[in-house]
Amino acid sequence: SKWSPSQVVDWMKGLDDCLQQYIKNFEREKISGDQLLRITHQELEDLGVSRIGHQELILEAVD
Rank of each mutant, 00 (worst) to 15 (best):
C18L: 01
E60Y: 05
E56I: 11
S6Y: 10
V8K: 01
E27R: 10
D46A: 13
D16K: 04
Q20I: 08
Q35D: 10
T40F: 00
H54Y: 01
Q20G: 10
W11C: 02
Q7G: 06
Q35R: 15
H41A: 13
D46K: 15
E43P: 00
L15W: 08
L57G: 04
I58H: 08
S4N: 14
Q20V: 08
Q35C: 07
I39A: 06
S6M: 13
H54F: 01
D63W: 07
N25L: 12
D10Y: 09
V9P: 01
S4A: 01
L44K: 02
I58V: 07
P5G: 07
V49Q: 01
V9A: 12
V49A: 02
E29Q: 14
N25K: 08
H54I: 00
V62H: 00
T40D: 07
D10I: 08
N25A: 14
F26H: 00
K2S: 14
K2R: 07
P5M: 07
Q20P: 02
F26I: 07
G14R: 08
K2Y: 14
S4P: 06
E29P: 02
G53R: 15
E29R: 14
V62P: 02
M12F: 12
L36H: 00
E29T: 10
D46S: 13
I31F: 05
D17V: 07
E27N: 05
K30P: 06
E27C: 06
L36V: 03
L15R: 05
V62I: 13
G53K: 15
D16G: 06
L36K: 02
S4V: 05
W11Y: 06
I31C: 00
G53T: 15
I31M: 07
Q42D: 07
R38E: 08
S50N: 06
P5R: 05
S50L: 12
C18E: 11
G33Q: 05
S4H: 07
V9S: 09
E60N: 14
E27H: 07
D10K: 10
D16F: 05
L37G: 10
G33M: 08
E43S: 10
Q42W: 02
E43D: 15
V62T: 05
D34F: 08
Q55M: 05
L37T: 10
R38T: 12
K2I: 12
E45G: 11
L15G: 04
D63H: 14
G48E: 03
F26A: 02
T40N: 09
E45F: 13
L57K: 15
D16C: 03
G33T: 04
K13N: 09
G14M: 06
Q21D: 12
